[in-house]
C-alpha cells in the first residue's frame, strides 16, 4: 500500500480568512503518484502549490507532509514556480547548483563534488550543456524552463511541485522534458503535483487529474459536467 506523502484536511487556502480561495479542501497524494490540477485562471491553483511548499500559511485546517505536521525538510521538496524563480544574473550552472546543494551539502558548507557532478548531469539531461556558463537573462523562455527543471532534478526531491512548467516549450522539447521528469518520478518513487492548463496533456501525464473550481477540488471524469468544465476552461484559455 502506498504511503500518503501530502495530506490536507479541511484546509482553507488563500490570503483573507473571510474570503478564502479554497475552502474545506481534503487531499491525499500518495508516494509515486503524479497528480495534475487544472482549473480556470485566478481560482487558486498556484496558491495551493505555494501553500504546500510552505510559502503561504494555511488559513485553516491541517496539512501533513510525510506524516509530519511540519514543513518539508531541506531538499525534500522541489518547486518550479510559474515564473520559474531563476536568478537572472547568474549562470545556468549556478542556478542548477543551488538545487543540487540542498541534498548534497550542509547549509554552512556549500562545497560538494557530488553536487557538481549532479549539476552537470542535470544540465546535460536537459540538453543545455552548451549554455552552462550563460546568464539566465540571455536565454529564451523555453531554455529557462529547462534550467528550472534541471535545478529540480539536480535536487532529487521526494516531492516536486511544478506550476505550468511545460509552457513555452516546443512539442519535441516538451516531450523530452516531460519524459525526463516522469522517468525521475517513476524511478525514484517520488511525487509530482503539476498545475497544467492543457487538459489533454494533463490527462496524458498524470495518474489523477483534479479540477479546481468554486473552491473545491474534484476528480476529472469524462461526463457531461466535466466536459462543461473542460469546455469552459478551453474557452477561457482560448484554446
Amino acid at each position: 500500500m502506498s504511503k500518503s506523502v501530502i495530506h490536507l484536511e479541511n484546509a482553507s487556502i488563500g490570503f483573507s480568512p473571510d474570503n478564502p480561495l479554497i475552502k474545506n479542501l481534503n487531499l491525499d497524494v500518495n508516494q509515486g503518484e503524479i497528480v495534475a490540477i487544472a482549473g480556470p485562471s485566478g481560482i487558486g491553483k498556484t496558491t495551493l502549490l505555494r501553500t504546500i511548499a510552505g510559502l503561504v500559511p494555511m488559513l485553516d485546517g491541517e496539512m501533513t507532509l510525510f506524516g509530519r505536521n511540519s514543513k518539508a525538510s531541506r531538499g525534500e521538496l522541489g518547486y518550479i514556480p510559474q515564473r520559474l524563480g531563476l536568478i537572472r544574473h547568474a549562470s545556468v550552472y549556478h542556478n542548477v547548483l543551488l538545487g543540487a546543494l540542498t541534498s548534497t551539502a550542509g547549509a554552512w558548507f556549500p562545497f560538494s563534488f557530488e553536487a557538481r557532478r549532479r549539476t552537470l548531469e542535470s544540465i546535460d539531461a536537459m540538453g543545455i550543456s552548451e549554455k552552462k556558463r550563460t546568464p539566465i537573462r540571455l536565454l529564451s523562455g523555453g531554455q529557462q524552463r529547462r534550467v528550472a527543471t534541471a535545478r529540480t532534478l539536480a535536487q532529487q526531491p521526494s516531492i516536486i511541485l511544478a506550476d505550468e512548467f511545460l509552457g513555452e516549450l516546443d512539442e519535441e522539447t516538451m516531450e523530452s522534458v516531460l519524459s525526463k521528469v516522469t522517468n525521475y518520478v517513476r524511478t525514484n518513487n517520488a511525487t509530482l503535483i503539476v498545475v497544467e492548463h492543457d487538459i489533454s496533456r494533463a490527462k496524458r501525464m498524470a495518474d489523477h487529474l483534479l479540477i479546481l473550481d468554486d473552491g473545491q477540488l474534484n476528480p476529472f471524469v469524462d461526463q457531461p459536467i466535466a466536459m462543461q468544465i473542460s469546455m469552459r476552461l478551453d474557452k477561457e484559455l482560448d484554446i
Binding site: 510559502l55 525534500e76 522541489g78 518550479i80 514556480p81 524563480g85 536568478i87 543551488l98 547549509a107
Partner: peptide, 21 residues
C-alpha cells in the same frame, strides 16, 4: 523579484545560502 527567493525557500535553503547564493 520574489521568485528566486521563494524557490530557494521552498528547496530548504538557509539564510546564508539565500543571501550569498
Amino acid at each position: 523579484d520574489r521568485g528566486p527567493l521563494e524557490a530557494s525557500k521552498a528547496m530548504g535553503h538557509g539564510w546564508f545560502e539565500r543571501s550569498f547564493g
